[in-house]
Design a binder for these strands. Structure first.
Length: 592
RNA sequence: GGGGGCGUAGCUCAAUUGGUUAGAGCACCGGACUGUCGAUCCGGAGGUUGCGGGUUCGAUUCCCGUCGCCCUCGCCA
């Protein structure tokens, strides 16, 4: 086999006169009857090869070359004649005039070539992922992902962290997301669960005295995927002892600052902080997108002065009326605003009252109901002619926040109000510790049950648990939650109290988390940490909104791998070994 | 589990109100061509219109079911 001396992105006019051997895939071929041109592709780029009829043996072989054949070729690097250079290629100043060609492997005609893959349907790309991944764009993403994890490991090494692996075969914990289960052969009828995160292990590593732990680790949650969510995903997971919230946040800020500088050459300024309460009030979201304004304004007092029953009814029921001003939104048609009204219903709204601002007063929509407050409303919102005003109305303040919070993001995108190239970082802090679950009639952790309550609110735990804030913090970038963490409870007494509040009785707590409660008794240092979604971080750096783009072998929305056709049925013998039987009405034909 | 969109040649798409032999570009095959770089020119082959059923004289088109892919609500401590 010819050994390669240069890769396909390497040769320049200064190499002219030397002999080079290159290897790669045939990206395209152009046969002119006499001279044959091959664009050869490898990981690093494209180089043009030329075969002249004078070198008969090589030329005859080259005549048979087709897309995606794998070859190696040796020849003289020659400068291209004046006007023949190809400015589109980094190597466009030269070509390799080949006298030796070795066909390392012929390729069948591929369903699509890497050149075309950008236009091919995603299902095709996933089925033939090895062809899709030959695209320079995909290789660039994988390279970026590699660089990000490399920077992470270097950074945490410098900061004194140890990377420690935690088990994939874990005990199932009923809290949180649905577990992926793995049947145990040695314990018939028992199951492992794949970790939703290494949460408990990393806390126990703190009890063990590791002090600073980090891991880039796969996590598994058996929930339905979304564009930015996959059942199997990767977290940067870290935990630190003898620290407070600021220590963790500063450590993470230092990391993202280095990553953004080295990968994107962008300086991350000190990240601003906002309380959960303020985020919900001003933006209707715990992960506000600060790249545009359209803040939520409370107009309950004005709305209560109208005769509009939609407003007054909700207010009387303890609800709220808030409004957003959509700059230039008056251009939206009736059909479009009706569409929005329909769209907000999925978030619990009855509809979406709107009006437009014309000639210094309100018009269309619900204008006739709110004319008495028109002047005050326009002043309060700072509205101008040509603006659209949307009202969020509900008996529940949480619904008002959700509706307007989702609406402002949708409108900002649709009306192209987001200036590209912005990186708006934010820490959201002071989350509530718990929230009341109306359906289940109980308190649920907002973060997880090991999150420490804030010291000032400790006294409220019994009197007004819903008002207790926690030492939890989320890192938000451009309206997307990149990661989150908290200071943990290190006192077994406080932990017990929280379990009680959450309705986890002593017996259940002992059964589920006994090992953690035990560990906390034997000298647990104060500790806290955070986890960042690596896939999402790489998505931001690569400018994609599709998580499948940043995962080499992703799964579809159905949890299927189109290339390997996982999941699949298994032999009865395998089930027998595991003491499992598949219910026939659920099983595909082959399983029974 | 719910809502929406899509499925036609290897790939990306078209096909009038339900009406002749389902078309185009790229890819593929054959030929021509000694400087192209999305090569060009000539010719050719290629279809279970996702699958199953129904309505109809006639279905890519309408209806029902089903499968697959995408977006989304629920879900995601």
């Amino acid at each position: 086999m010819l050994k390669r001396t240069h890769h396909c992105g390497q040769l320049r006019d200064t190499d002219a006169g030397s002999t080079a051997t290159v290897a790669g895939w045939v990206n395209s071929y152009r046969d002119h009857g006499g001279v044959i041109f091959i664009d050869l592709r490898d990981r690093e780029g494209l180089t043009q090869l030329v075969f002249h009829p004078e070198n008969k043996e090589a030329h005859d072989l080259a005549d048979k070359l087709r897309n995606e054949d794998v070859i190696a070729a040796t020849g003289k690097v020659v400068p291209r004649a004046e006007g023949m250079a190809n400015p589109k290629l980094a190597t466009g100043a030269i070509e390799v005039d080949c006298d030796t060609l070795e066909i390392l492997n012929k390729a069948e005609t591929p369903p699509f070539t890497p050149d075309e893959a950008g236009k091919v349907g995603e299902a095709q790309r996933l089925k033939y992922r090895y062809l899709d991944l030959r695209r320079p764009a995909m290789q660039k993403i994988l390279r970026t992902r590699h660089r990000v994890t490399k920077i992470m490991r270097d950074y945490f090494d410098e900061e004194g962290f140890y990377e420690v692996e935690t088990p994939f075969l874990c005990r199932s914990t009923p809290e949180g997301a649905r577990d992926f289960l793995v049947p145990s052969r040695l314990h018939a009828g028992s199951f492992y669960a794949l970790p939703q995160s290494p949460q408990l292990f990393k806390q126990i590593l703190m009890v063990a005295g590791l002090e600073k732990y980090v891991q880039i680790v796969r996590c598994f949650r058996d929930e339905d995927p979304r564009a930015d969510r996959q059942a199997e995903f990767t977290q940067l997971d870290l935990e630190m002892s003898f620290v407070d919230q600021d220590d963790v946040m500063n450590t993470v800020e230092g990391l993202v600052r280095r990553i953004w500088k080295q990968v994107a050459d962008i300086d991350v300024p000190p990240v601003q902080r906002m309380t959960y309460a303020e985020a919900m009030d001003r933006f209707g979201s715990d992960r506000p997108d600060l790249r545009f304004s359209m803040e939520l304004i409370d107009v309950t007092d004005l709305a209560s002065q109208t005769e509009f029953k939609v407003f007054t009814g909700s207010i009387a029921a303890g609800g709220q009326v808030k409004a957003i001003r959509v700059p230039g939104g008056a251009t939206l048609t009736r059909k479009q605003t009706d569409g929005l009204a329909e769209w907000v219903k999925q978030f619990g709204a009855g509809g979406l009252p709107i009006c437009k601002v014309e000639n210094g007063t309100v018009a269309t929509g619900v204008a006739k109901f709110i004319e008495p407050i028109a002047g005050a409303l326009i002043e309060k919102l700072g509205a101008d002619d040509g603006d659209l005003i949307c009202f969020g109305v509900s008996d529940k303040k949480s619904v008002v926040a959700r509706v307007l919070g989702e609406l402002r993001v949708k409108l900002a995108h649709e009306l192209k109000m987001i200036e590209p190239g912005q990186w708006k970082w934010l820490w959201v802090v002071d989350f509530p510790l718990i929230e009341y679950n109306d359906e289940q009639k109980r308190w649920d952790s907002l973060h997880h049950p090991f999150t420490a309550p804030s010291d000032e609110d400790l006294a409220l735990l019994e009197s007004d648990p819903g008002a207790v804030r926690s030492k939890a913090y989320d890192l938000v970038l451009n309206g997307s939650e990149l990661g989150g963490g908290s200071i943990r409870i290190h006192s077994p007494q406080v932990q017990q109290k929280i379990f009680n509040l959450l309705g986890i009785d002593d017996e259940a707590a002992k059964a589920k988390f006994g090992f953690l409660l035990d560990a906390l008794k034997f000298g647990a240092p104060p500790h806290g940490g955070l986890a960042i979604g690596l896939d999402r971080m790489v998505m931001h750096l690569c400018g994609t909104t599709n998580i499948r783009d940043v995962i080499a072998f992703p799964k579809t929305q159905n949890g299927a791998d189109l290339m390997t056709e996982a999941p699949s049925t298994v032999d009865l013998a395998q089930l027998d070994e595991l003491s499992l039987r598949v219910q026939t009405h659920h099983a595909p034909d082959k399983a029974v």
